[in-house]
């Protein structure tokens, strides 16, 4: 089943670490957000393939926005 990884807070996308099609393990860093001068890594919560990556570096994400879909 596909897992949607969402942003926990309003933030800027500082770094996108993976690309669509990559295989990831549980706990791998997908993207690094930045909010209020703090870097916040967004991690995969299950192993699988990155089916979709919905953000680019420099984007602003809102709380609850889907960042990636892991399947």
């Amino acid at each position: 089943m596909a897992e949607e990884v969402r942003a926990e807070m309003v933030a800027n996308v500082w770094k996108v670490v993976v690309t669509a099609g990559d295989t990831v393990a549980d706990g791998d860093t997908l993207v690094i957000l930045e909010s209020m001068k703090m870097e916040i890594p967004v991690l995969a919560e299950s192993a699988g393939t990155v089916q979709e990556l919905r953000v680019n570096e420099g984007d602003v994400v809102q709380e609850g926005d889907v960042i990636a879909v892991i399947g």
Binding site: E8, M9, V10, A11, S35, M36, M38, I40
Partner: peptide, 13 residues
């Protein structure tokens, strides 16, 4: 600070 009081993660809004 605008942050959650448990983990101290940023909380803009």
């Amino acid at each position: 600070y605008a942050e959650d009081p448990r983990r101290f993660l940023p909380s803009p809004g």
